[in-house]
Design a protein around this nucleic acid. Structure first.
Length: 218
DNA sequence: TGGATTTGACCCAA
DNA sequence: TTGGGTCAAATCCA
């Protein structure tokens, strides 16, 4: 089974690379009429392959989540002199994760959300809640996969310098309520309401068993 | 009232 | 020029 999986991964990888090559070739063409549709299609194929690969990697890991280390070195923090003045963070010291849930036990504070081009789902930006207290520089990007798998593509930047969550059970307990002060390490974590504004805060009880697959759905 | 979220504006890199 | 990442004022909520 492992061999088949490996072959599948290789096949998908070739498909994704081919789609990218085709996309590059199409861009060089002057025929603009069909370029848009074909280009969109190729981009969709490429994204589907990519999502499939991520899911497969998640299965291969034997865990709910999988991590892909980029192996790049950290970058100095951006200067924040005034609003919007920053150095764009590149894929430095990042870990890519695909998971059915966006929760990881840490306390995250949402600081932005953007509509991404050619993507049906917005990308949400989170930083560690303890940034002020512990100077924790951990960042997190969350975006739903577009392959219909109801999984989430999560990218972590940097590492937590704040105390880690106590244990799994406490993670679950505190994960679903931002007002749970019994767990100082995790005063708030990501909930559906972070991404779906239609969810009200008084629905915290439902968050205990909150299914992340419904998140980001409009 | 204080902390968290929303959202439009701003700026940088490609 | 534009998409993406971040800021910060406004707003929400316990």
């Amino acid at each position: 089974m492992d061999i088949n999986k490996k072959e599948l991964v290789e096949t998908l990888t070739r498909g994704r690379n081919s789609a990218k090559k085709l996309q590059n070739l199409l861009i060089q063409k002057d025929n603009v009429d069909n370029l848009v549709c074909v280009d969109d299609l190729v981009a969709e194929i490429s994204q589907s392959f990519y999502g499939g690969l991520l899911v497969l990697n998640a299965c291969n890991s034997g865990d709910q989540m999988t991590e892909v280390h980029t192996g790049k070195t950290p970058e100095p923090p951006a200067s924040k002199g005034r609003r919007g003045c920053y150095k764009r963070r590149k894929t430095v010291d990042s870990r890519m994760v695909v998971s059915e849930t966006i929760e990881d036990g840490y306390a995250w504070r949402k600081y932005g959300q953007k509509e991404i081009l050619n993507s049906n789902f917005p990308r949400c930006y989170f930083r560690c809640t303890h940034k002020q207290v512990h100077g924790c520089k951990a960042l997190k990007q969350v975006q739903k996969l577009e392959d219909g798998s109801n999984m989430f593509h999560i990218i972590y930047f940097g590492h937590h310098t704040c105390p880690p969550p106590n244990n799994t059970s406490s993670q679950l307990a505190c994960t679903n309520s931002k007002s749970n002060h019994n767990f100082p390490n995790s005063p708030s974590t990501i909930t559906k309401s972070h991404i779906d504004p239609s969810v009200k805060q008084d629905d915290l009880t439902n968050k205990m068993n909150f299914n992340a697959s419904r998140m980001m759905e409009v």
